[in-house]
C-alpha cells in the first residue's frame, strides 16, 4: 500500500518535472499541445479555451494597448475574428504586459480600449504572465493558431507587412486557418516579426 503511494508520488513528481521542462522559457513549438488557461476578460468574467464552446480551433493573439505594432494590427485582428469565428475559429486576445512597466496596458485601460474599438472577441489579462511564458510569447503581436485539440499549428506574424495592410503579400494566419479548416497542410507554419517585447515583471 505504502509502496503504491510512493510509486504514485514518484510518477507525479516525474510528470511535474517533465512538464516544467516542456513549458520552459522556450515555450511551444508547432506540434505541441497548448495547456488551457483561465484568465479575466474585459467584461469581468473568466475565460478558458474549453469554455468557448463548440470551436474547431483558436486564433490566440498576444497583443496589448500601447505597442505601435499591435495598434497597426488591431483592425486586422478584428477582421480575422469576423471572418473566422463563424467558421469555428475565434480570436482570443491576451495582454501579458506588466502594468508597472507599461502603464497603458493595465486591466482598466484594456477594458477602455476594447470598448472604444468594439472588440468582438475576448481580451484577456494575463496578470501573472504565466500564459505568455507557457506559450513562449515574446512580443506583441505574436499569434498562435491552435486546432480543436489545442495542438499548436502556426506561430508568428499575422501577415508580411505590419505597416501597410494593403501591401501584405502573404496573409500567414488567414492561410493557416483556411488550410486547417479544409484539412490541408499549412504551407508556412512559423514566421518571425518585429514587435514590442513583452514587458516582463522585474
Amino acid at each position: 500500500m505504502i509502496l503504491k503511494k510512493l510509486l504514485a508520488l514518484s510518477l507525479l513528481l516525474s510528470w511535474l518535472f517533465a512538464t516544467s521542462f516542456s513549458n520552459g522559457p522556450t515555450g511551444y513549438v508547432v506540434g505541441d499541445t497548448a495547456q488551457d488557461f483561465n484568465l479575466k476578460n474585459v467584461d469581468g468574467k473568466m475565460v478558458s479555451l474549453a469554455a468557448m464552446g463548440n470551436t474547431k480551433g483558436y486564433i490566440v493573439v498576444f497583443t496589448c494597448n500601447h505597442c505601435p505594432y499591435a495598434q497597426a494590427y488591431e483592425a486586422r485582428v478584428i477582421e480575422l475574428h469576423k471572418k473566422f469565428a463563424p467558421l469555428g475559429y475565434p480570436v482570443v486576445a491576451i495582454n501579458s504586459n506588466d502594468k508597472d512597466r507599461a502603464p497603458d496596458d493595465s486591466y482598466e485601460l484594456m477594458v477602455e480600449r476594447a470598448k472604444e474599438n468594439g472588440y468582438p472577441f475576448p481580451y484577456l489579462y494575463d496578470d501573472t504572465q504565466s500564459v505568455a511564458k507557457a506559450f513562449g510569447a515574446l512580443r506583441t503581436p505574436h499569434v498562435f493558431v491552435l486546432d480543436q485539440q489545442k495542438v499548436v499549428r502556426y506561430i508568428g506574424a499575422i501577415d508580411d507587412n505590419a505597416e501597410d495592410p494593403a501591401g501584405a503579400k502573404v496573409k500567414y494566419v488567414e492561410n493557416a486557418v483556411n488550410a486547417l479548416n479544409t484539412g490541408q497542410e499549412i504551407a508556412v507554419k512559423e514566421t518571425r516579426a518585429i514587435g514590442c517585447g513583452i514587458k516582463w515583471k522585474q
Binding site: L138, R139, G156, N161, A162, E163, K169, R192, I194, G195
Partner: peptide, 19 residues
C-alpha cells in the same frame, strides 16, 4: 523592407524579432 520574416532570418536564423 516589408517582408520582415525574410530579413530577420538574414540577421540571425534564431532571432524571434524582438528588439
Amino acid at each position: 523592407e516589408p517582408n520582415t520574416d525574410e530579413w530577420i532570418r538574414l540577421v540571425n536564423p534564431n532571432w524571434s524579432g524582438t528588439i
